[in-house]
Simulated assay, not measured.
Amino acid sequence: MRRQKAEGTTRTTKYFDYTLLFLIIFMLGFGLVLLYSTSSYEAMNKFGDSTYYLRHQLRNMMLGLVLMVFFIVVDYRRWKRLALPIYGLSLLACVAVIFFGVEYNGSKRWLEIQGIQFQPSEIAKIAIILFMALIISRRPNCLGTFKNYCKMIAFAVPLGGIVAVSNLSTAIIIMGIAMIMLFVAGPKARYFIGLMVAGAFAVVALILAQGYRSSRIGAWLHPEDYDNGYQTLQGLYAIGSGGLFGKGLGESVQKLGGVPEAQNDMIFSIICEELGIFGAICIILLFVLMLWRFMFIANNAKDLFGSMIAVGVFAHIALQVILNIAVVTNTIPNTGIILPFISYGGTSLIFLMAEMGLVLNVSRSIRIEDR
Rank of each mutant, 00 (worst) to 15 (best):
R3Y: 11
T9E: 14
T9L: 11
R11A: 08
T13K: 05
T13Q: 09
F22T: 08
I24H: 03
L28R: 11
G29P: 06
L32R: 10
L35G: 02
E42M: 07
E42C: 00
A43N: 02
M44I: 00
N45E: 14
K46E: 08
Y52K: 06
H56C: 00
Q57Y: 06
Q57I: 03
R59L: 15
M61T: 15
G64S: 12
G64F: 08
G64H: 12
F70A: 11
F71P: 00
D75K: 14
K80A: 05
K80D: 03
Y87D: 11
S90Q: 06
L91V: 03
V97Y: 06
F99L: 03
F99T: 05
G101D: 03
V102F: 03
S107Y: 07
L111Y: 08
Q117P: 01
P120Y: 08
A124D: 08
K125L: 05
I129H: 14
L130P: 13
F131N: 14
M132R: 05
R138C: 06
T145I: 11
C150R: 13
C150H: 04
I162E: 15
A164C: 03
A164H: 02
S166F: 08
L168D: 12
V184C: 00
V184A: 01
K188M: 00
Y191T: 04
F192T: 07
I193A: 09
L195A: 10
V197T: 05
G199A: 09
A200G: 02
A205P: 04
L206F: 07
L208W: 03
G218E: 10
H222G: 01
D225E: 10
N228C: 03
N228Q: 14
Q231I: 00
Q234W: 00
L236A: 01
Y237A: 01
Y237D: 00
Y237N: 00
G240V: 04
G242F: 04
G246P: 11
G248Q: 12
V253F: 14
P260V: 00
E261F: 04
E261D: 07
Q263L: 05
I270L: 15
E273F: 01
L275D: 04
I281T: 08
C282G: 05
I284R: 10
L285G: 13
L286R: 05
V288I: 14
L291Q: 09
R293I: 09
F296N: 08
N300K: 11
N300D: 10
L304I: 02
F305D: 11
M308N: 13
A310P: 14
V311I: 15
G312F: 12
A315K: 09
N324M: 12
N324Y: 06
A326E: 07
N334K: 12
I337E: 02
I337R: 00
I338L: 00
G345Q: 11
S348L: 01
S348H: 05
L352A: 03
M356S: 01
G357N: 04
V362M: 13
S365E: 15
I366P: 03
R367G: 12
E369I: 10
